[in-house]
Simulated scan of single mutants.
Amino acid sequence: MNSAFKTALLLLVAALAAVPVVAETESDEEAREKQRKRNELKNKQESQALISAQFSYGFSDVADKLVIISCKSEQGKTFGSGFVARMDGKTYIFTNQHVIMGADKISFKTASGTQLKPRSVELSLTRDIARLELETDHAFDIGNEVEMDIPVAVFGNSEGAGVGTELFGVVNGLGAELVETSAEFVSGNSGSPILNLSQEVLGIASYVRVSRNHAMKEGTKFENQTRRFCYRLSGVEWKSVRWTHYNKQYGKLYRQSEMLYNGIFEIIKNWSESPLAKVSIEDNPERSLHSWAKSHNEVISRFDRSSAHKRQLMTEYAESLKKLSGVCRGRARQISMFSEQRELTGFLREEFEKQSGSLDYAAQWIDQCSAMIYSQR
Protein backbone atom coordinates (compact mmCIF):
# COMPACT_ATOMS: atom_id res chain seq x y z
CA MET A 1 0.00 0.00 0.00
CA ASN A 2 2.80 2.43 0.87
CA SER A 3 4.49 2.19 -2.53
CA ALA A 4 1.14 2.63 -4.30
CA PHE A 5 0.45 5.81 -2.33
CA LYS A 6 3.89 7.22 -3.12
CA THR A 7 3.67 6.41 -6.82
CA ALA A 8 0.18 7.90 -7.20
CA LEU A 9 1.03 11.13 -5.39
CA LEU A 10 4.33 11.65 -7.19
CA LEU A 11 2.60 11.19 -10.53
CA LEU A 12 -0.02 13.72 -9.46
CA VAL A 13 2.65 16.34 -8.71
CA ALA A 14 4.41 15.64 -11.99
CA ALA A 15 1.24 16.04 -14.02
CA LEU A 16 0.24 19.28 -12.33
CA ALA A 17 3.68 20.72 -12.97
CA ALA A 18 3.24 19.92 -16.68
CA VAL A 19 6.03 17.35 -16.64
CA PRO A 20 5.30 14.62 -19.17
CA VAL A 21 4.65 11.29 -17.51
CA VAL A 22 5.42 8.41 -19.80
CA ALA A 23 3.57 5.19 -19.11
CA GLU A 24 5.91 2.30 -18.47
CA THR A 25 5.75 -0.61 -20.86
CA GLU A 26 5.43 -4.09 -19.48
CA SER A 27 8.78 -5.15 -18.09
CA ASP A 28 10.48 -8.42 -18.87
CA GLU A 29 9.90 -9.42 -15.26
CA GLU A 30 6.15 -8.80 -15.53
CA ALA A 31 6.01 -10.77 -18.77
CA ARG A 32 7.83 -13.67 -17.14
CA GLU A 33 5.45 -13.51 -14.17
CA LYS A 34 2.41 -13.72 -16.46
CA GLN A 35 3.92 -16.67 -18.27
CA ARG A 36 4.71 -18.36 -14.95
CA LYS A 37 1.09 -17.98 -13.86
CA ARG A 38 -0.14 -19.47 -17.11
CA ASN A 39 2.19 -22.41 -16.66
CA GLU A 40 1.07 -22.88 -13.06
CA LEU A 41 -2.63 -22.91 -13.88
CA LYS A 42 -2.65 -26.39 -15.42
CA ASN A 43 -0.62 -27.85 -12.54
CA LYS A 44 -2.93 -26.19 -10.03
CA GLN A 45 -6.04 -27.60 -11.65
CA GLU A 46 -4.55 -31.09 -11.65
CA SER A 47 -3.58 -30.74 -7.98
CA GLN A 48 -7.10 -29.57 -7.07
CA ALA A 49 -8.60 -32.60 -8.80
CA LEU A 50 -6.32 -34.97 -6.87
CA ILE A 51 -7.22 -33.37 -3.54
CA SER A 52 -10.98 -33.20 -4.18
CA ALA A 53 -10.99 -36.88 -5.17
CA GLN A 54 -10.06 -37.76 -1.58
CA PHE A 55 -13.30 -36.28 -0.19
CA SER A 56 -16.28 -38.59 0.07
CA TYR A 57 -18.69 -35.66 0.46
CA GLY A 58 -19.48 -32.49 -1.44
CA PHE A 59 -21.29 -29.19 -1.02
CA SER A 60 -24.78 -30.68 -1.09
CA ASP A 61 -23.90 -33.04 1.77
CA VAL A 62 -23.08 -30.17 4.16
CA ALA A 63 -25.35 -27.41 2.78
CA ASP A 64 -27.63 -27.50 5.83
CA LYS A 65 -24.64 -26.57 8.03
CA LEU A 66 -23.25 -23.82 5.81
CA VAL A 67 -24.57 -20.28 6.29
CA ILE A 68 -24.86 -17.45 3.78
CA ILE A 69 -24.85 -14.12 5.63
CA SER A 70 -26.45 -11.02 4.11
CA CYS A 71 -25.80 -7.60 5.68
CA LYS A 72 -27.45 -4.26 4.92
CA SER A 73 -26.07 -0.88 5.99
CA GLU A 74 -25.71 2.65 4.66
CA GLN A 75 -22.67 1.36 2.77
CA GLY A 76 -24.92 -1.01 0.82
CA LYS A 77 -25.40 -4.75 0.84
CA THR A 78 -22.57 -7.15 1.61
CA PHE A 79 -22.30 -10.91 1.93
CA GLY A 80 -20.22 -13.33 3.88
CA SER A 81 -20.13 -16.93 4.96
CA GLY A 82 -20.57 -18.85 8.17
CA PHE A 83 -21.31 -22.32 9.47
CA VAL A 84 -23.13 -24.10 12.26
CA ALA A 85 -21.05 -26.10 14.76
CA ARG A 86 -21.21 -27.46 18.29
CA MET A 87 -19.02 -26.01 21.03
CA ASP A 88 -19.16 -26.13 24.82
CA GLY A 89 -22.33 -28.21 24.72
CA LYS A 90 -24.24 -25.65 22.60
CA THR A 91 -24.83 -24.94 18.91
CA TYR A 92 -23.68 -21.72 17.28
CA ILE A 93 -23.36 -19.91 13.97
CA PHE A 94 -19.68 -19.06 13.53
CA THR A 95 -18.42 -16.26 11.30
CA ASN A 96 -15.83 -13.49 11.29
CA GLN A 97 -16.49 -10.35 13.29
CA HIS A 98 -15.64 -8.22 10.25
CA VAL A 99 -18.45 -9.87 8.26
CA ILE A 100 -21.25 -8.59 10.53
CA MET A 101 -19.65 -5.48 12.06
CA GLY A 102 -21.44 -2.23 11.20
CA ALA A 103 -24.52 -3.84 9.64
CA ASP A 104 -27.98 -2.38 10.28
CA LYS A 105 -29.69 -5.64 9.37
CA ILE A 106 -28.27 -9.15 9.21
CA SER A 107 -29.93 -12.26 7.85
CA PHE A 108 -28.67 -15.83 8.16
CA LYS A 109 -29.74 -18.55 5.76
CA THR A 110 -28.32 -22.02 5.30
CA ALA A 111 -27.05 -22.93 1.86
CA SER A 112 -30.01 -25.31 1.67
CA GLY A 113 -32.41 -22.38 2.15
CA THR A 114 -33.41 -22.48 5.84
CA GLN A 115 -33.63 -19.15 7.65
CA LEU A 116 -31.79 -19.07 11.00
CA LYS A 117 -32.57 -16.82 13.96
CA PRO A 118 -29.70 -16.67 16.48
CA ARG A 119 -30.42 -15.49 20.03
CA SER A 120 -27.20 -13.97 21.33
CA VAL A 121 -23.77 -12.78 20.20
CA GLU A 122 -20.36 -13.56 21.65
CA LEU A 123 -17.06 -12.23 20.30
CA SER A 124 -13.59 -13.70 20.60
CA LEU A 125 -11.41 -11.54 22.83
CA THR A 126 -8.41 -11.81 20.50
CA ARG A 127 -9.42 -13.35 17.18
CA ASP A 128 -11.66 -12.21 14.33
CA ILE A 129 -14.42 -14.66 15.25
CA ALA A 130 -18.03 -14.28 16.39
CA ARG A 131 -20.43 -16.99 17.52
CA LEU A 132 -24.21 -16.64 17.70
CA GLU A 133 -26.20 -19.18 19.68
CA LEU A 134 -29.18 -20.94 18.10
CA GLU A 135 -31.07 -24.22 18.17
CA THR A 136 -30.69 -26.73 15.36
CA ASP A 137 -29.90 -30.41 14.94
CA HIS A 138 -27.60 -29.88 11.96
CA ALA A 139 -24.10 -28.92 13.09
CA PHE A 140 -20.45 -29.70 12.41
CA ASP A 141 -18.14 -31.09 15.03
CA ILE A 142 -14.92 -29.20 15.71
CA GLY A 143 -11.64 -31.07 15.22
CA ASN A 144 -8.62 -30.12 17.29
CA GLU A 145 -6.05 -32.32 15.55
CA VAL A 146 -4.44 -30.47 12.66
CA GLU A 147 -1.36 -31.67 10.78
CA MET A 148 0.74 -30.31 7.95
CA ASP A 149 -0.13 -31.32 4.38
CA ILE A 150 -3.51 -32.88 5.18
CA PRO A 151 -6.24 -32.19 2.58
CA VAL A 152 -8.90 -29.59 3.44
CA ALA A 153 -12.06 -28.27 1.82
CA VAL A 154 -13.56 -24.77 1.99
CA PHE A 155 -17.27 -24.64 1.16
CA GLY A 156 -18.75 -21.17 1.17
CA ASN A 157 -20.03 -18.08 -0.58
CA SER A 158 -17.18 -16.97 -2.86
CA GLU A 159 -17.19 -13.27 -3.87
CA GLY A 160 -20.46 -12.76 -1.99
CA ALA A 161 -22.42 -14.02 -4.99
CA GLY A 162 -24.81 -16.14 -2.93
CA VAL A 163 -23.68 -19.21 -4.85
CA GLY A 164 -22.04 -22.13 -3.07
CA THR A 165 -18.51 -23.04 -4.13
CA GLU A 166 -16.11 -25.86 -3.34
CA LEU A 167 -12.41 -25.10 -2.87
CA PHE A 168 -9.72 -27.61 -2.01
CA GLY A 169 -6.16 -27.44 -0.75
CA VAL A 170 -3.82 -28.63 1.97
CA VAL A 171 -2.63 -27.32 5.32
CA ASN A 172 0.72 -25.65 4.63
CA GLY A 173 1.24 -23.76 7.89
CA LEU A 174 0.40 -24.22 11.57
CA GLY A 175 0.40 -21.90 14.57
CA ALA A 176 -1.19 -21.65 18.00
CA GLU A 177 -4.05 -19.50 16.65
CA LEU A 178 -3.75 -19.80 12.87
CA VAL A 179 -3.82 -22.40 10.14
CA GLU A 180 -2.49 -21.54 6.69
CA THR A 181 -4.00 -23.32 3.70
CA SER A 182 -3.43 -23.49 -0.04
CA ALA A 183 -7.21 -23.55 -0.68
CA GLU A 184 -7.75 -20.33 -2.64
CA PHE A 185 -10.64 -18.76 -0.77
CA VAL A 186 -11.58 -15.14 -1.48
CA SER A 187 -13.44 -12.29 0.23
CA GLY A 188 -16.93 -13.80 0.20
CA ASN A 189 -15.53 -16.92 1.87
CA SER A 190 -14.76 -15.00 5.06
CA GLY A 191 -16.37 -17.10 7.80
CA SER A 192 -16.36 -20.36 5.84
CA PRO A 193 -15.37 -23.57 7.63
CA ILE A 194 -12.08 -25.30 6.86
CA LEU A 195 -13.07 -28.98 6.82
CA ASN A 196 -11.06 -32.19 6.96
CA LEU A 197 -11.93 -35.51 5.36
CA SER A 198 -14.18 -36.38 8.33
CA GLN A 199 -16.29 -33.20 8.02
CA GLU A 200 -14.70 -31.71 11.14
CA VAL A 201 -14.04 -27.98 11.32
CA LEU A 202 -10.31 -27.21 11.64
CA GLY A 203 -10.63 -23.43 11.42
CA ILE A 204 -12.53 -20.47 10.00
CA ALA A 205 -11.43 -18.78 6.75
CA SER A 206 -10.48 -15.26 7.79
CA TYR A 207 -8.00 -13.26 5.74
CA VAL A 208 -5.69 -13.16 2.74
CA ARG A 209 -2.21 -11.67 2.79
CA VAL A 210 -0.32 -10.75 -0.37
CA SER A 211 3.42 -11.27 -0.01
CA ARG A 212 5.17 -8.43 -1.85
CA ASN A 213 8.46 -8.77 -3.67
CA HIS A 214 11.43 -8.43 -1.34
CA ALA A 215 15.09 -9.39 -1.60
CA MET A 216 14.82 -11.58 1.52
CA LYS A 217 12.03 -13.62 -0.14
CA GLU A 218 13.76 -14.27 -3.47
CA GLY A 219 14.00 -17.97 -4.15
CA THR A 220 11.70 -18.90 -1.24
CA LYS A 221 8.10 -20.15 -1.27
CA PHE A 222 7.00 -16.72 0.01
CA GLU A 223 8.21 -14.82 -3.04
CA ASN A 224 5.35 -12.89 -4.69
CA GLN A 225 2.76 -15.16 -3.10
CA THR A 226 -0.80 -14.83 -1.85
CA ARG A 227 -1.24 -16.57 1.51
CA ARG A 228 -4.53 -17.53 3.15
CA PHE A 229 -5.09 -17.85 6.89
CA CYS A 230 -7.77 -19.38 9.08
CA TYR A 231 -8.30 -18.86 12.79
CA ARG A 232 -8.39 -22.01 14.88
CA LEU A 233 -11.41 -22.50 17.13
CA SER A 234 -9.53 -24.14 20.00
CA GLY A 235 -8.42 -22.07 22.97
CA VAL A 236 -10.73 -19.13 22.21
CA GLU A 237 -11.86 -16.80 25.01
CA TRP A 238 -15.34 -15.40 24.46
CA LYS A 239 -16.99 -12.14 25.49
CA SER A 240 -20.77 -11.77 25.56
CA VAL A 241 -21.88 -8.39 24.15
CA ARG A 242 -25.11 -6.43 23.84
CA TRP A 243 -24.90 -6.51 20.08
CA THR A 244 -27.16 -3.55 19.28
CA HIS A 245 -25.16 -1.25 21.56
CA TYR A 246 -21.74 -2.62 20.64
CA ASN A 247 -22.43 -2.47 16.92
CA LYS A 248 -23.91 1.03 17.03
CA GLN A 249 -21.09 2.37 19.21
CA TYR A 250 -18.13 0.75 17.47
CA GLY A 251 -19.16 -1.39 14.51
CA LYS A 252 -20.57 1.46 12.47
CA LEU A 253 -17.48 3.61 13.04
CA TYR A 254 -15.31 0.70 11.94
CA ARG A 255 -17.29 0.30 8.71
CA GLN A 256 -17.47 4.07 8.03
CA SER A 257 -13.74 4.46 8.52
CA GLU A 258 -13.09 1.54 6.20
CA MET A 259 -15.19 3.26 3.54
CA LEU A 260 -13.38 6.56 4.12
CA TYR A 261 -9.96 5.00 3.70
CA ASN A 262 -11.04 3.04 0.62
CA GLY A 263 -12.51 6.20 -0.88
CA ILE A 264 -9.37 8.26 -0.27
CA PHE A 265 -7.12 5.56 -1.65
CA GLU A 266 -9.32 5.28 -4.75
CA ILE A 267 -9.13 9.06 -5.24
CA ILE A 268 -5.35 9.01 -5.00
CA LYS A 269 -5.11 6.06 -7.38
CA ASN A 270 -7.27 7.89 -9.94
CA TRP A 271 -5.14 11.01 -9.59
CA SER A 272 -2.14 9.06 -10.88
CA GLU A 273 -4.03 8.50 -14.13
CA SER A 274 -5.83 11.81 -14.46
CA PRO A 275 -5.01 14.44 -11.80
CA LEU A 276 -7.27 17.08 -13.35
CA ALA A 277 -10.33 14.87 -13.61
CA LYS A 278 -13.23 15.60 -11.30
CA VAL A 279 -13.52 13.41 -8.25
CA SER A 280 -16.40 10.95 -8.48
CA ILE A 281 -17.46 9.35 -5.20
CA GLU A 282 -21.14 8.69 -5.81
CA ASP A 283 -20.64 5.05 -4.93
CA ASN A 284 -19.01 5.90 -1.61
CA PRO A 285 -21.55 6.91 1.07
CA GLU A 286 -18.94 8.34 3.45
CA ARG A 287 -20.35 11.83 4.13
CA SER A 288 -17.08 13.48 5.09
CA LEU A 289 -15.79 12.99 1.54
CA HIS A 290 -18.75 14.55 -0.24
CA SER A 291 -18.39 18.16 0.89
CA TRP A 292 -14.67 18.04 0.15
CA ALA A 293 -15.28 16.55 -3.31
CA LYS A 294 -17.76 19.29 -4.15
CA SER A 295 -15.29 22.11 -3.41
CA HIS A 296 -12.41 20.23 -5.05
CA ASN A 297 -14.40 19.75 -8.26
CA GLU A 298 -15.07 23.49 -8.36
CA VAL A 299 -11.29 24.02 -8.47
CA ILE A 300 -11.05 21.46 -11.27
CA SER A 301 -13.75 23.33 -13.23
CA ARG A 302 -11.66 26.48 -13.10
CA PHE A 303 -8.67 24.52 -14.38
CA ASP A 304 -10.84 23.40 -17.29
CA ARG A 305 -11.96 26.92 -18.14
CA SER A 306 -8.71 28.82 -17.82
CA SER A 307 -4.98 28.30 -18.15
CA ALA A 308 -4.15 31.99 -17.71
CA HIS A 309 -3.96 31.79 -13.91
CA LYS A 310 -2.16 28.50 -13.49
CA ARG A 311 -0.23 29.71 -10.44
CA GLN A 312 -3.40 30.67 -8.58
CA LEU A 313 -5.19 27.49 -9.59
CA MET A 314 -2.30 25.30 -8.44
CA THR A 315 -2.41 27.15 -5.13
CA GLU A 316 -6.10 26.33 -4.81
CA TYR A 317 -5.38 22.73 -5.76
CA ALA A 318 -2.71 22.47 -3.07
CA GLU A 319 -5.07 23.98 -0.49
CA SER A 320 -7.76 21.49 -1.50
CA LEU A 321 -5.33 18.67 -0.78
CA LYS A 322 -4.65 20.17 2.64
CA LYS A 323 -8.37 19.99 3.37
CA LEU A 324 -8.42 16.33 2.38
CA SER A 325 -5.51 15.59 4.71
CA GLY A 326 -7.53 17.32 7.43
CA VAL A 327 -10.40 14.89 6.82
CA CYS A 328 -7.95 12.00 7.22
CA ARG A 329 -6.43 13.36 10.43
CA GLY A 330 -9.79 14.18 12.00
CA ARG A 331 -11.02 10.63 11.54
CA ALA A 332 -7.68 9.18 12.64
CA ARG A 333 -7.93 11.07 15.96
CA GLN A 334 -11.52 9.90 16.48
CA ILE A 335 -10.62 6.27 15.83
CA SER A 336 -7.56 6.49 18.05
CA MET A 337 -9.70 7.65 20.98
CA PHE A 338 -12.23 4.86 20.45
CA SER A 339 -9.46 2.25 20.33
CA GLU A 340 -8.83 2.91 24.03
CA GLN A 341 -12.31 1.81 25.11
CA ARG A 342 -12.08 -1.12 27.52
CA GLU A 343 -15.14 -2.95 26.20
CA LEU A 344 -13.59 -3.43 22.76
CA THR A 345 -12.44 -6.88 21.73
CA GLY A 346 -8.83 -7.24 20.67
CA PHE A 347 -9.85 -7.62 17.03
CA LEU A 348 -11.66 -4.29 16.83
CA ARG A 349 -8.99 -2.50 18.87
CA GLU A 350 -6.33 -3.67 16.42
CA GLU A 351 -8.51 -2.68 13.47
CA PHE A 352 -9.01 0.84 14.86
CA GLU A 353 -5.28 1.18 15.42
CA LYS A 354 -4.58 0.07 11.84
CA GLN A 355 -7.20 2.42 10.41
CA SER A 356 -5.87 5.33 12.44
CA GLY A 357 -2.31 4.64 11.30
CA SER A 358 -3.34 4.27 7.65
CA LEU A 359 -5.31 7.53 7.65
CA ASP A 360 -2.43 9.36 9.34
CA TYR A 361 -0.10 7.95 6.72
CA ALA A 362 -2.41 9.10 3.93
CA ALA A 363 -2.58 12.58 5.49
CA GLN A 364 1.22 12.83 5.63
CA TRP A 365 1.63 12.00 1.96
CA ILE A 366 -1.20 14.26 0.86
CA ASP A 367 0.44 17.10 2.82
CA GLN A 368 3.78 16.38 1.16
CA CYS A 369 2.10 16.38 -2.21
CA SER A 370 0.45 19.71 -1.39
CA ALA A 371 3.82 21.19 -0.38
CA MET A 372 5.44 19.96 -3.60
CA ILE A 373 2.69 21.59 -5.67
CA TYR A 374 3.18 24.88 -3.77
CA SER A 375 6.91 24.72 -4.53
CA GLN A 376 6.40 24.20 -8.28
CA ARG A 377 3.84 26.91 -8.94
Results as ranks from 00 to 15, higher is better:
V241Q: 02
K252T: 08
F140I: 01
A277C: 10
L348S: 09
Q199P: 04
Q256T: 04
E282H: 08
Y374G: 02
L174N: 02
G113A: 09
V154W: 12
G164T: 11
L50A: 15
D283N: 13
S234L: 03
R119C: 12
G219W: 02
G191N: 02
E180K: 04
V299K: 15
Y57E: 04
S47A: 15
I373Y: 11
V21H: 07
V241F: 06
I93F: 11
S358D: 09
A18E: 08
V186K: 05
D283K: 14
N270M: 03
K109C: 04
N284P: 07
E286M: 13
D61Y: 01
S339D: 08
E30M: 10
S272F: 01
D61K: 01
N39C: 07
H290A: 09
E350L: 13
K105R: 14
K6Y: 04
A215L: 12
R209W: 12
V154H: 11
T244F: 07
R212N: 05
T220M: 11
C230A: 15
L195S: 08
A49I: 07
Y254W: 15
L344M: 11
E273G: 05
T110F: 10
T91R: 03
E145V: 03
F352V: 00
S27E: 03
A371Y: 14
Q48E: 12
S370Q: 10
K109N: 06
S356E: 00
A31G: 05
I335G: 05
V163R: 08
S336R: 15
I366M: 06
L66K: 00
K42P: 03
S291Q: 14
E166R: 05
F5M: 15
M314H: 14
V171H: 01
E74Y: 10
M372E: 06
P275H: 01
I194L: 15
L202N: 05
I267P: 02
T220C: 02
V121Q: 00
N196S: 07
I335T: 12
E319C: 14
E200M: 13
F108K: 09
D360Q: 09
E223I: 03
R38L: 11
Q249L: 09
E122W: 00
K6E: 03
Y207M: 06
P151Q: 03
A111S: 11
H98E: 00
I204V: 14
I106E: 08
R127L: 12
E319A: 15
Q225I: 09
G160T: 01
R227C: 12
S274Y: 03
A332R: 13
R287W: 10
A318E: 08
K217N: 09
L174Q: 06
P193V: 06
S280K: 10
D28W: 11
A277G: 09
V152R: 09
S272D: 00
S306K: 04
A308F: 09
H309Y: 12
S339I: 02
S375F: 04
K37Y: 09
Y374H: 08
A277D: 12
Q249F: 09
E319K: 15
G80R: 04
Q115G: 04
N172D: 11
F347K: 11
E166M: 10
K37C: 01
K77Y: 11
E30I: 07
L197V: 10
E24W: 08
C369K: 02
R86D: 03
I268N: 01
L202F: 14
N213G: 12
E350A: 15
Y374L: 06
S187F: 00
M337G: 13
A362C: 04
